[in-house]
Design a protein around this nucleic acid. Structure first.
Length: 941
RNA sequence: GGGGCCGUAGCCCAAUGGCAGAGGCACACGGUUUAGGUCCGUGCCAGUGUGAGUUCGACUCUCACCGGCCCCA
């Protein structure tokens, strides 16, 4: 081994060589501002740039939270993908914008601050620098002038600015868009719009006016039930609470509490957020998730009269089936239950209904105790076993006056809809199952299709047993019954949403402060734009006060509230200096990521969030009806709902208010897969270092001679299976790492990491290197001899295929084609590699292995960066073959092949095929001969 | 419970309804070599999770089932 190093050729493309080359070209790119993308206007414009005014391409990755543990090899998968993609389009002539930033507010830095006293800004900035270094080392071609972090004061100034715009807007339901709040005030003042309580605007006190206006703002304070988590000391959005009522982070109990919180009126945009999904080029899966999340149901609210004071109100999507409603079910917790219970069971009550209890009150109490023992999840899981109990009361079906019994059952959830349903067993499977258990009548009101032998029929068909609805289809019947209900005051057509308003305040330190103060009335006042940014004050203690995890009655206490000198301020808001109190909540982490795609466009703009020309160029609609937006947005599917919904909402508000020309932030979305890894545990269940595990026999893994068990999952410190990009750069070089990640499969497929396979990518790049560089002498091996025809044809096929593959983000097959070409050229290059093929090969390799390509490009005699060299274009003349080989199938089996001129007519091909398999046909006349031009011939006998 | 996605060589993955193999890993062999965790070349292994159906022809389309992953409840 001592002599081994001597024998590695001195100019081989090794990890060490790669490291030198990579550092050199990374410096070159920085020094030459190679990846600056010119804006149409403003400080980042540059009319002399080679791509100024060219067709644009705006590609973004979901920016990372810069965590303290740095990147592992899974993180940059998407970044490398978009880098290859954009480098290709830059070479193809586009002005490419591909920025990267950091979602840098967040809890880990704050928790670290709580533990150590280190200011979150210090931790955050250190982590961001580390990330920048790691990403730079991978050769990612970012325009670093545009690298924003949400924690930058200059960035969150504009986050606050957007908040003010949202606060100072209302949603006009008639025009379905946000409008400035001043227009609402004018409408109230002029009487064009009625004041909710019917008084004249002039009769309202100033405070009353403010309260009316505040009730219409898109950002508003609500005394509303929220998810209070004493263990974290903060409230959580619904999305941050697990189905079993605990915090997603920390797994602490969460309680419903009524607290004053900031909300965003995202529900007003429900229809547009839903309808505009149809105009987006997004994975169907993500669209479906958003549709489910918004959860629009069209139907009606229907009131069923009771013996009590109040009717039972239900929401149903099938009001057309009202004639088949034979009983009602309330959630066990429904508020009307207590007032409806009679003292005794009605005469001759079905024993199954009572559960054997002496009185309705006993039965309800017992059932409630039973249901309370189950979580919502368990209730759903147990839903097959229908349980419930009659409460002794009846309600009146408004369409026919029949008295129908009222049950409570846990298959109806208090939190869903009105917490009550009308049960229509004929058309609902759950109701049918319940009706069977309790001997309840079943009336079909939709004629099932012929041959239907199931129970409940949920399909479409003519109405039956429904008086004036008989014969109508479901849709017409719905419309008619809703009219009927509305005329008689029994109900009203309604559209409901699952989507709730967005809880927008957090009791934390490390977030954007609200640009809001309160005066003596306790009502919020927006600060003027001139007072932005509202900077985070220094505090002694960064943590919100946390409580015993089960202390449901505790109240949030924010870290900022302790910064007394910051909270109590004297300001002149236009009517002289007065004392005010600042809002001490901060915004949630979603805030910065809800609009960052816009700031990349114009990060140095001091006067505007983004100049109109810049936004229109990069994100504006490309044709009539186009929603505009980022041309390609790549990230994990875990953000399918929240981040993408919030970003769409803010974007639409800014669009409505006229600040931007695009209706949607992300025209095309792509979900990359994950790189996962094997982890190994010893017989105590403790993870062992995955790197040191050997597979001694198939499926048998050993660590230091001890048998260990393999599992598959995420990369993480705790599983001791982390592989970092830094390690890969060290051992193989960044280009090899990039090529490996791109070649291991399609970008959207998750796959296991396998370090030992990386060497394949390295060998490929070494072969490319060897075509140009003599490993012994460092001399150039490229020659100007003519290329043989076969290699030339391969070259053009590869050029053609690689372009398509990259454009469709099939990088794995693009690289396979490049390897195929490289292997071919290696075989013909004993006496030197022909420039005719090496030149385009280096160009085609450059999106994937940019440093290597730059180096070889220079050795080929070029003196500027390959980043702006033209990507090769295939010559069609070399794509068509002279002759084609046809297989001949007889009854589906290949019986022979023949070769014939590519332009041979169909008859000639048929003749040749029949001649080829004449022996098999043995004189029989084929029933059918199918000629697939250029592909094959199939004969049926 | 509902919905969606995915099952191709030992492994990662290709294949407009048209001869199952482009590429890589691993493995084997040959050449180069004092040597090889080098380089060059050659080879190897699956009939596409299972069962039906449509078709001249199915990895590809349809249905059912099995297994894995994701979302909703």
């Amino acid at each position: 081994m001592t002599d081994g190093a001597v024998d590695i050729p001195p100019y081989r493309y090794t990890a060490g060589m790669a490291a030198d080359i990579e550092a050199c070209w990374q410096d070159y790119w920085s020094e030459h501002s190679t990846f600056y993308a010119p804006n149409p206007t403003g400080p980042l414009s540059d009319p002399n740039h080679p791509r100024a005014g060219a067709p644009k391409l705006y590609v973004m990755d979901m920016f990372p939270y810069p965590s303290g543990s740095g990147l592992h090899v899974g993180h940059p998968l998407g970044y490398i993908g978009t880098d290859c993609y954009t480098r290709y389009f830059r070479m193809a002539g586009y002005n490419v914008l591909h920025p990267m930033g950091f979602d840098a507010f967040g809890l880990p830095a704050e928790q670290y601050a709580v533990q150590t006293g280190t200011h979150p800004r210090i931790t955050t900035e250190a982590n961001v620098e580390r990330y920048r270094g790691q990403l730079r080392r991978l050769g990612l071609a970012y325009d670093d002038r545009r690298s924003v972090a949400t924690t930058d004061t200059e960035f969150y100034r504009w986050t606050q600015w957007i908040f003010l715009k949202i606060f100072n807007s209302w949603f006009d339901a008639d025009s379905q868009k946000a409008r400035p709040i001043e227009e609402l005030i004018s409408a109230f003042a002029s009487g064009e719009r009625a004041v909710p309580d019917g008084r004249a605007w002039a009769d309202l006190t100033p405070v009353e006016r403010r309260e009316v206006i505040d009730d219409h703002r898109l950002a508003y304070i609500s005394e509303a039930p929220v998810n209070w988590c004493p263990g974290l000391g903060t409230v959580l959005a619904n999305e941050e609470v697990t189905p079993d009522g605990r915090s997603e982070r920390g797994n602490f109990p969460v309680f419903k509490r009524s607290l004053r919180q900031w909300m965003m009126r995202i529900t007003t945009y429900g229809d547009r957020l839903l309808d505009d999904l149809d105009r987006l080029d997004w994975p169907e899966k993500v669209k479906t998730m958003q549709r489910n999340w918004i959860g629009r149901s069209r139907g009606a609210h229907v009131d069923f009269a009771t013996d009590g004071d109040e009717p039972i109100r239900v929401f149903t999507t099938r009001p057309d089936t009202l004639f088949g409603a034979t009983y009602m079910v309330l959630a066990p917790e429904h508020e009307l239950v207590s007032s409806l219970i009679p003292a005794a069971w009605p005469a001759s009550v079905n024993e199954r209904w009572t559960g054997g209890h002496a009185t309705p009150a006993d039965a309800v109490a017992a059932y409630r105790a039973f249901a309370a023992g189950k979580s919502d999840v368990e209730r759903q899981a147990d839903a097959k076993e229908k349980t419930g109990v009659f409460i002794g009361a009846y309600a009146v079906n408004p369409v026919n006056g029949s008295r129908i019994p009222v049950f409570i059952a846990d298959y109806v959830l208090a939190g869903y809809g009105t917490g009550a349903i009308m049960a229509v067993p004929g058309q609902d499977e759950r109701d049918w199952a319940f009706a069977e258990v309790f001997d309840l009548p079943i009336i079909r009101t939709v004629q099932p299709t012929d041959g239907f032998d199931g129970k409940a029929f949920t399909g479409d068909g003519p109405a039956i047993n429904s008086a004036f609805l008989d014969g109508l289809g479901v849709t017409e019947a719905k419309a008619k019954i809703i009219d009927w209900l509305e005329e008689r005051g029994h109900g009203v057509g309604a559209i409901t949403y699952r989507l709730r308003d967005w809880l927008f305040s957090r009791q934390r330190y490390w977030g954007e402060p609200f640009p809001i103060v309160y005066d003596a009335t306790g009502l919020p006042i927006a600060l003027p734009e001139s007072m932005l940014p509202v900077e985070l004050p220094e505090v002694e203690d960064f943590s919100p006060r946390t409580f015993d995890v089960d202390d449901a009655d505790s109240d949030p206490e924010t870290p900022l509230s302790r910064a007394k000198e910051w909270v109590e301020v004297t300001l002149d808001l236009g009517d002289g200096p007065k004392p005010y109190t600042r809002e001490t909540n901060v915004m949630p982490q979603w805030a910065g990521s809800s609009w960052y795609e816009l700031r990349y466009l114009d990060p140095a703009n001091q006067d505007q969030l983004v100049a109109a020309d810049n936004e229109r160029y990069w994100m504006g609609p490309q044709k009539p009806g186009d929603v505009g937006g980022v041309d390609l947005y790549v990230g994990g599917v875990e953000h399918a709902v929240l981040h993408l919904l919030y970003a769409r909402f803010w974007h639409k508000v800014l669009f409505d208010l006229g600040y931007i020309s695009s209706e949607e932030p992300f025209r095309k979305l792509f979900n990359q897969g994950y790189i996962q890894a094997y982890a190994y545990r010893d017989d105590r269940g403790t993870p062992v270092p995955a790197e040191e595990v050997e597979e001694r026999a198939p499926g048998q893994y050993y660590y230091k001679d001890a048998r260990v068990q393999r599992e598959y999952g995420k990369m993480g410190k705790s599983l001791k299976n982390v592989v970092t990009p830094d390690e890969m750069c060290e051992r193989y070089g960044a280009d090899t790492f990039r090529v490996y990640e791109m070649s291991m499969g399609p970008l959207d497929v998750s796959r296991p990491w396998e370090t030992r396979a990386v060497v394949g990518a390295q060998r490929f790049l070494q072969r490319v290197w060897r075509l140009v560089v003599d490993e012994q002498t460092d001399a150039t091996r490229v020659v100007d001899t003519a290329l043989d025809d076969e290699t030339r044809r391969l070259l053009h096929r590869v050029v053609d295929g690689v372009r398509v593959d990259i454009e469709e983000m099939r990088f794995n097959t693009a690289i396979a084609k490049l390897i195929e070409l490289t292997n071919r050229v290696t075989q013909i290059s004993a006496a030197g590699a022909p420039r005719e093929v090496v030149d385009p090969l280096v160009r085609m390799v450059s999106p994937f292995a940019p440093h290597l390509a730059e180096e070889l490009w220079q050795r080929l005699g070029n003196d500027s960066s390959i980043a702006y060299a033209d990507f090769p274009v295939a010559d069609q003349a070399f794509l068509v073959a002279d002759s084609v080989k046809y297989p001949v199938q007889v009854n589906g089996k290949v019986r022979g092949t023949f070769e014939i001129a590519a332009d041979a007519g169909e008859d000639a091909v048929r003749e040749a095929a029949l001649a080829e398999v004449a022996a098999q046909l043995a004189g029989k006349t084929p029933k059918k001969v199918i000629v697939v031009k250029g592909r094959m011939v199939s004969i049926v006998v």
